[in-house]
Amino acid sequence: MSHISVRNLTVAYNGHPALRDVSFDIPDRQVTAIIGPSGCGKTTFLRCLNRLIDVNNSVRVQGQVLIDGEDIFAPRADVMSLRRKMGLLSQKPQVLPMSIFDNVTYGPRLHGVRKRAQLEQIVERCLRMASLWDEVSGRLRAPAAELSVGQQQRLCLARGLAVQPEALLCDEPTASLDPISAQSIEQLFMELKNDYTVVLVTHILRQARRLADYLVFFYMGELVEHGPAQQMLSNPSDPRTRKYLEGVIS
């Protein structure tokens, strides 16, 4: 059984449905790209996986998201540890108002890591994983806001990795980056998928082609089609998927 599986997930904002009866399994340790036109429910879906959707209090969620067999929307579910397991990389890099070092150690500190040496180790390991270490190792005490946007996004990735997540949820993570920074983020995903389940929301079809092992197509809040990327790209079974892949609908 797969690590993350979605069962009959329906989400409505103020009574307007944003996702309708979505069910599928997200394959482990692969890049799953979620594609579809704007407003099709991609981001809503992603926000369900770490329950960040709870922040909005006019939202209603039905159905189940099972992680390791446990429903994360169950009344007694531990939201804090769920969010630790599901790292988030958002569209615009969101650095915390503190130093580079403190950004990376923010999560570990919350979860009880106190020893200086251990924190320093985490910082180096995660910054190296995000291939940022060489650029910032000399100025870890500098405010994170001083980094370039591309560096900030890699810092956000390092910060997410520092709490040892099991999956990475990425919401159009290259949308606000220059082409070179975007390329380095994509490169990182290719390396990270060996150890993490990556769920990538993207509106760039070519990015999905480059990165995805598994494709999921949403249209108007509905899960239209999902399957191995190669198969779906070369031979989509639903006419709507075909139209989207051909660029007729976008």
């Binding site: 770490n50 960040l52 922040v55 804090m80 540890s81 969010r83 630790r84 599901m86 790292g87 988030l88 958002s90 969101q94 650095v95 915390l96 923010y106 999560g107 919350l110 979860h111 956000c156 910060r159 997410g160 709490v163």
Partner: peptide, 8 residues
């Protein structure tokens, strides 16, 4: 949300 997503 970045803070919340780290488990804060």
């Amino acid at each position: 949300e970045a803070s919340l997503s780290l488990g804060a």
